Simulated assay, not measured.
Amino acid sequence: MDFRPVAYDHPDAVKLQADVQLEYAERYGEGDLTPLDPAMFTPPRGLYLIAYDDEGFPVATGGWRAQRADEENYADGDAELKRMYVVPAARGKALARRMLALLEADARAAGRTRMVLETGTEQPEAVALYLSSGYTPVPLADRFGLYRHTDESRCFTKPLL
C-alpha cells in the first residue's frame, strides 16, 4: 500500500470524497455540508493523504486541517480529522488505522497538540476505530463542528503530545 500526500482537489481525492458523501447520504439522508477548501489541507496547516493499492487504484483517504479557538468549540492547537474513508472492497485490511496513525504523526510534527474529530451514530465502525486508537468521547455540551447540535453527532479527541 502506498500512502501519498495529494491536494484536496486532486482528481482521485475528488472521486473518493464523492464516494464518502454517498455513504453519508445512505446513512444520514444527506452528505456532510461542512465547508472545506483545498487550502485547508496544505502543509503545514493540514495534510490530505490517499492510499493506493498495488495496482495504483485509490482505496482510502483522510486528512487533517488546523483549527483554532472559535464559536464551534475548537481550541488553539487542534488538528481536525476529515474525510476518513476506505472503499468497501478494501475494508478489513487496517487501512483506516494506518491512515489515522500517519495523519496523527503529521499533525504532531506540525505542532498540533490535539486531534479532534466528529463522526456520527450511524458510523459504528468509525466509533470503534477511534475508541480503540485512544480517542476519548467529548461530553455532549462540549461537542464541536457544524453538527455539534445534532443528536447523531459524536465528537472525540486525542492528545498529540
Score class of each variant (00 low, 15 high):
residue 21 Q to W: 10
residue 22 L to T: 15
residue 33 L to F: 14
residue 85 Y to E: 01
residue 23 E to R: 14
residue 87 V to C: 03
residue 7 A to V: 07
residue 27 R to G: 15
residue 35 P to V: 05
residue 161 L to D: 13
residue 14 V to K: 14
residue 92 G to P: 08
residue 68 R to E: 00
residue 114 R to P: 01
residue 140 L to V: 06
residue 12 D to A: 09
residue 159 P to D: 05
residue 85 Y to H: 03
residue 35 P to A: 08
residue 84 M to W: 03
residue 37 D to Y: 14
residue 66 A to F: 04
residue 64 W to Q: 02
residue 71 E to A: 10
residue 154 R to C: 02
residue 71 E to R: 09
residue 35 P to H: 11
residue 101 A to K: 11
residue 134 G to P: 07
residue 26 E to G: 15
residue 69 A to S: 08
residue 67 Q to C: 04
residue 2 D to H: 14
residue 132 S to T: 11
residue 3 F to N: 14
residue 113 T to P: 08
residue 87 V to Q: 03
residue 13 A to I: 07
residue 152 E to S: 10
residue 126 A to Y: 10
residue 63 G to Y: 03
residue 6 V to W: 14
residue 45 R to Q: 15
residue 144 F to H: 06
residue 23 E to W: 12
residue 31 G to D: 14
residue 101 A to W: 06
residue 54 D to N: 12
residue 81 L to N: 07
residue 46 G to H: 13
residue 136 T to H: 03
residue 5 P to M: 07
residue 91 R to L: 02
residue 29 G to T: 11
residue 105 A to V: 05
residue 82 K to F: 02
residue 85 Y to P: 01
residue 99 M to C: 07
residue 56 G to N: 12
residue 2 D to W: 11
residue 91 R to V: 01
residue 153 S to Y: 04
residue 109 A to P: 12
residue 151 D to V: 01
residue 35 P to M: 08
residue 29 G to D: 14
residue 82 K to D: 03
residue 63 G to A: 03
residue 123 Q to W: 09
residue 57 F to A: 12
residue 127 V to Q: 10
residue 9 D to P: 13
residue 98 R to L: 07
residue 155 C to Q: 00
residue 53 D to T: 08
residue 137 P to E: 02
residue 130 Y to L: 02
residue 93 K to G: 03
residue 94 A to W: 09
residue 46 G to L: 09
residue 160 L to N: 12
residue 10 H to E: 13
residue 130 Y to T: 02
residue 144 F to W: 04
residue 117 L to D: 00
residue 141 A to K: 04
residue 5 P to R: 12
residue 13 A to H: 14
residue 110 A to Y: 10
residue 95 L to P: 10
residue 80 E to V: 01
residue 32 D to Q: 13
residue 158 K to C: 05
residue 85 Y to N: 01
residue 6 V to C: 15
residue 109 A to F: 07
residue 41 F to A: 10
residue 115 M to Y: 09
residue 96 A to Q: 06
residue 107 A to N: 11
residue 132 S to L: 06
residue 106 D to F: 03
residue 49 L to T: 13
residue 93 K to D: 05
residue 135 Y to H: 07
residue 35 P to S: 09
residue 106 D to M: 03
residue 41 F to M: 11
residue 46 G to R: 12
residue 61 T to L: 06
residue 54 D to M: 09
residue 55 E to R: 13
residue 151 D to Q: 06
residue 108 R to C: 08
residue 34 T to N: 15
residue 31 G to L: 11
residue 122 E to K: 13
residue 111 G to K: 09
residue 100 L to V: 06
residue 95 L to T: 07
residue 76 D to L: 00
